[in-house]
């Protein structure tokens, strides 16, 4: 469960260009949700996602993931939290260019110290769901955009994190590939009960989600 209480974040604070990026956000995301944070460009989607993912700090308020209050953690603890509990899918440049598909998928598990065989098994498992099992030895620059995003999703879910955050995962994809990716993620959500939280203004993502949180100028307009 993710809980946000009165979260505020400013950019360029105390300057003329001050932006109130997150304005008193309080919300709860239960385990197993398939939810999108949406809104117009610049409404604070990515900022909110980064705050939940412990990538960025907030200026006030509390964010807790499970029992952990992440707003209290230092940089080292936040890195450990991201590694252990959260999976990420970004808009682009998701993959480590020097590693092949299988190594990219298994990267997080390897960092977490899983046994070699367990990693191999899990790679095959998620690769099958995401239909990339035929490209396991390819390098990232040999893949199409859709394939790259599916590898990124595979990596994000491989270590079975409590929470997967996907920031505009379909932004660089055509509609066919977007649909395919969303369908696969929904399958994952159903099969593995992974909590997935999107930030997106892609209509298709919004439609597929079971719950929509609409942001406007940094505050929640509709839950």
């Amino acid at each position: 469960m993710v809980r946000l209480e009165h979260v505020h974040k400013y950019f360029n604070r105390d300057t003329q260009r001050e932006v109130h990026a997150l304005d008193d956000i309080s919300l709860v995301i239960e385990d197993g949700e398939f939810t999108v944070i949406t809104g117009t460009s610049g409404c604070g989607k990515t900022t909110l996602l980064n705050a939940i993912g412990a990538l960025d700090s907030v200026d006030s308020g509390r964010i807790t993931i499970g029992e952990t209050e992440i707003t209290q953690l230092d940089e080292r603890e936040r890195a450990a939290l991201r590694l252990q509990d959260i999976g990420f899918v970004f808009q682009a440049y998701n993959l480590i260019p020097v590693l092949n598909v299988a190594e990219n998928i298994g990267f997080i598990m390897r960092l977490q110290g899983y046994h070699h065989e367990a990693i191999e098994k899990r790679i095959r498992e998620v690769a099958a769901i995401l239909e990339i099992d035929h490209r396991l030895s390819a390098m990232p620059n040999e893949l199409s955009g859709g394939q790259q995003q599916r590898v990124a999703v595979a990596r994000a879910v491989a270590a079975k994190p409590g929470l997967v955050l996907a920031d505009e995962p379909t932004a660089n994809l055509d509609s066919k590939n977007s649909q395919r990716l969303m369908q696969m993620m929904k399958n994952l959500n159903e099969i593995e009960k992974t909590t997935i939280l999107f930030a997106s203004h892609d209509d298709y993502v919004v439609e597929m989600s079971r719950r929509q949180i609409i942001l406007s100028d940094g505050h929640v307009e509709k839950m």
């Binding site: 993912g53 990420f88 480590i96 990267f107």
Partner: peptide, 12 residues
């Protein structure tokens, strides 16, 4: 690329 590693939870 290094930013990605850090986002994924690799400590600096």
């Amino acid at each position: 690329e290094l930013g990605l590693l850090r986002a994924l939870g690799v400590h600096s």
